[in-house]
């Protein structure tokens, strides 16, 4: 079920970026190549790229986030966009103003790109149907977080030179993780083999139908993998509700030297952050500069988000005299 239109015309031809599910290899490759261009540049050199000059980007976060929001903000500012940050406590939204009302208010502000994070799966999609601009999903509930998956893919591709043929293990709270979903869709689309590792209480049903192999034994799951992708375990899920205790979780599902030894000798470690050291990952492993890609992931985050902003605003610039062609 490939999108031949997308293959015939390289580029990203959707209005929104809501998820990695359904993207074609060509589209993903295009976004990664675009991001690669930004990644190799000295950040200071294109700080004033005029690409989005005169355009408005709104960061609309219904869930607290520092890292993702800052990363998007930096990406937009490096492209000279006017950036507005709106943090909305979802609890107060529940009382009166609905998501639809919010969309109507935003339409009146005429933004060009809306970057949205929301605690409910599907909420960003709902909003995207009601607003007049492009929307980037910065994380919706347990559903998708596409820019995280793209930055992970870019990080892997830069180190390993490819995605196809690699074996990637995603470990942790698969059930509630939008990072896991976006990553497994993207990686399987690009030809990587994906394993998911979690205790049965944190493994969603039917996950195998998404084209991955499921493991509850972490050692078995890590055998001969190229990439170990750890997920953050939310505090509220640690204390007896999904797993009996932190120390028990760490014993069986925390990444330490011992378990890592099951992976390939050159296997690399990733984490979307922020890490819980001693919960899902051992400090010694997390800080191993030869193995850990965690700092690099953060750097790639800005490059990938610049690429996404560029791709989604391509139509805005068509025939726009404000931006010279060489400014792209």
């Amino acid at each position: 079920m490939q999108d031949f239109e997308a293959i015939a015309r390289p580029g990203y031809r959707h209005r929104h970026l809501l998820g990695t599910e359904g993207l074609t290899p060509a589209e993903i490759g295009y976004l990664l190549d675009l991001a690669e261009n930004y990644a190799v540049q000295d950040p200071r050199a294109h700080q004033h790229s005029p690409l989005l000059s005169g355009h408005t980007v709104i960061n609309l976060f219904f869930e607290t986030s520092t890292r993702t929001r800052t990363s998007f903000e930096l990406a937009a500012k490096r492209l000279s966009a006017d950036v507005i940050n709106m943090s909305v406590a979802w609890s107060s939204i529940k009382k009166g103003e609905t998501l639809i009302d919010t969309a109507m208010t935003l339409n009146a502000m005429h933004p060009d790109v809306l970057i949205v994070r929301h605690p409910d799966s599907g909420a960003v999609k709902l909003l995207s149907e009601k607003v007049h601009c492009s929307v980037i999903n910065a994380g919706d509930g347990s559903h998708e977080h596409p820019t995280q998956a793209l930055l992970d893919a870019l990080t892997i591709r830069r180190r390993k030179g490819k995605l196809a043929g690699l074996t990637v293990a995603i470990c942790g709270d698969i059930m509630h993780s939008r990072v896991a979903r976006s990553n497994l869709h993207l990686l399987t689309t690009m030809g990587a083999r994906v394993r998911v590792i979690a205790p049965p209480t944190l493994m969603p049903s039917g996950i195998e139908r998404l084209g991955v192999e499921a493991y509850m034994d972490m050692r078995a799951g890590l055998r001969d993998v190229d990439i170990v992708m750890m997920l953050r375990l939310q505090t509220e899920r640690m204390q007896g509700s999904y797993v009996p205790s932190i120390r028990e979780y760490f014993r069986f599902y925390g990444l330490d030297r011992d378990k890592l030894a099951m992976a390939k000798p050159d296997a690399l470690i990733m984490h979307p952050g922020p890490m819980n050291r001693g919960v899902e990952i051992d400090s010694e492993v997390a800080d191993d500069i030869d193995r850990s890609l965690i700092q690099e992931q953060v750097e790639m985050g800005v490059a990938v988000r610049m690429a996404c902003l560029e791709a989604l605003t391509a139509d805005l610039r068509a025939g726009d005299p404000r931006v010279p062609a060489e400014g792209r």
Partner: peptide
């Protein structure tokens, strides 16, 4: 309903 679709959509499943 719990299963592939709920997992895909990131919705909690009802078995």
């Amino acid at each position: 309903n719990s299963g592939e679709l709920a997992t895909r959509l990131g919705l909690s499943g009802n078995h």
